[in-house]
Write a protein that binds this DNA or RNA. Structure first.
Lengths: 202, 202, 202, 202
DNA sequence: GATGAATGAGGGTTCATTCAT
DNA sequence: GATGAATGAACCCTCATTCAT
């Protein structure tokens, strides 16, 4: 009777540990040994669950993305009014900022940096695809708003990019120096400017 | 003293080469040997002008920043109207996108990723300081606008962050996939939304 | 005591599996896990029957040797004429080439390579001892032939080495490229040259 | 003025050191660090001259082969009589046995073992090709002998294989235990048996 | 007895940095 | 000053072996 281990569960535990360590030391500066030690396991054990460091990295990225999508998805689920949904989308960012996941967000920059360099075909980190997905969601929210006559008929594709970019860029700035502004306040202010800027007859 | 001039000039040449190589291969994947080869000099020669790879990285960052500031500064120099200045600030980004410097912008993400991890005291890449500088500029532009009654009395500190963040985030998205939207169009659209969103009696 | 029989039987099964895997992948490239998997048992189980990989290797060598000796011994058993015996010895190689054991012969080179390196005292693979045994057999056959006046009084020790060497070397060459010559034909040709070369008044 | 190093010369020195170490410890048991230490250089320096251990191995093989070919070629160069040439070929082995190169011959077995496992397309160690080359040489010597009516019209292809195999196999046996027979004597005896065995009207 | 999860010593390789020429 | 040969610390990954179940 061999030792029975929930492989999936342990893989998850390693992954979460990895993300934490990535956040602390940076993806490139993190050694497999660091992850192993942080997880309280042997170096070799990591390789029982992941084939390579690269696989850990890309899985971390995917994991992080899915957390985000989850938070956002839950927020929008029960809303019907398109502007409410848009507002909820902004608000979801506020929630993420406070969430456990947020503490790992520093990794995202590493992923970005890594992702920009990847060939389009590479499986690992596909930044373009990630943005495409988010952009599609926001664009459809904006389209609903336009259809409902709640905002001017702006170019929703570009506007979606602007909204996403704003949140990303704001986050980076805040991480760089958390004392400079109150991120929650900033996120509250965002829709007031954006929605206001898009309202009206166009 | 021609030697001193030569020394400075050569340091510059190495730096510019380094930025190019960083952009192509990523900061982490760039070896000193790559820079030396690209610069057409010996590996050891690089160390005659720079004490370490780290120093090249931080100097690259500073150099890049100064290029940006230069472009923006020249744009704003002769303007008087505060809203014009704000618009010029946005427009400067459009110019940068087309500029020679822009071709190196892919490095910025590496700088970000690296910068976020640095201790505040570290000399290398001080993202916080960089943002502080930019934010101060934009904030003062916004303050002028508010003083002149051209926009609502918004929290100019946070708003400046939002504006900067928007441009950063937009850029990253565009780099990830340049076919998804027209960056020039996006930059033109930005002030229309922002200024509109901030106008009015507040 | 069925357990003891089982134990022996299972040890054999592991061994035979090991030889097969060794032949396919080479001794050095074969992992314990490979053997376990090929045997349809767990990795740990292998260690219930063998204390180390080294032991498996040396046992494989012994096993292989014994198979060969068996084939040859059976061939010579009922013969009386010394030259017939010598011819039968050659012929035995022809049989071995077709035998089940032959399919594993690719391992032999690994054994050779490993064996040459071993200290004389080491238990694992004693190439010298193996050759000594074979040589003694062939030498006594040759001595019989000389005594019977069937061949010239050659140095039977050296000649035995030559005969054995020829068969070994021929085999290796054939394994390297089986299309170059017909091994059965070569083995038939051997005694014609050797016996002829040793015949006569000396 | 950089340090000037005869790259080729140093590569050779590393190679020769490598062969020595391979001979002592076996190819598989030799660490790059061992080679470096034996050569009195740093581990990293080895990689300035060789891209991988694999490259060192295959180069060692090639080097060894070329030494052998050189010795043999020089022996045959000035001979005209076909049987003399054949005898010289045998004698060359006697010379090799005494030569500096011979002290490394233990590596050859590793090469063989490794070579047998290689795919035909693999560049590294091509045992089949090596044998083909040697076989062609010996076969043409035999063909000359047959044409000149000096030996029976044997199958020269197979006979060449037998001759080569004999020398290989003999060598291995001798390496396994050098006290058992005198290799020089054996090599002298070889042609007496072979030539005698092939002489006559057939 | 059987298992396979866990382990860590060990080896190949990279690369920033040094330094003799 | 310029160079590139030399170096070794570091890091990823492998795999024989152990051991708890």
């Amino acid at each position: 009777m061999p030792k029975i281990v929930d492989k999936k569960e342990k893989r998850s535990r390693i992954l979460e540990t990895a993300i934490k360590v990535f956040a602390q030391k940076g993806v490139n500066n993190t050694k497999i040994a660091d992850i192993a030690q942080a997880a309280g396991i042997g170096k070799g054990t990591v390789y029982e669950y992941y084939h390579s460091k690269e696989e850990i990295i890309s899985d971390s990225f995917r994991h992080f993305m899915e957390s985000m999508s989850g938070v956002i998805g839950r927020r929008l689920l029960h809303l019907r009014d398109p502007v409410d949904k848009l507002l909820a989308y902004f608000a979801a960012w506020g929630e993420i900022v406070d969430s456990e996941a947020m503490s790992y967000i520093e990794v995202v920059l590493d992923f970005w940096a890594e992702g920009l360099r990847q060939e389009k075909t590479a499986m690992t980190i596909n930044l373009a695809e990630m943005y495409a997905e988010y952009r599609a969601t926001v664009k459809s929210l904006l389209d609903e708003c336009v259809s409902a006559g709640r905002i001017r008929p702006v170019d929703t594709q570009i506007t979606a990019s602007i909204l996403l970019g704003t949140m990303d860029g704001l986050l980076v700035q805040w991480i760089a120096d958390r004392d400079v502004f109150d991120i929650k306040l900033a996120i509250e202010l965002l829709p007031k400017i954006f929605i206001a800027g898009m309202e009206g007859h166009g």
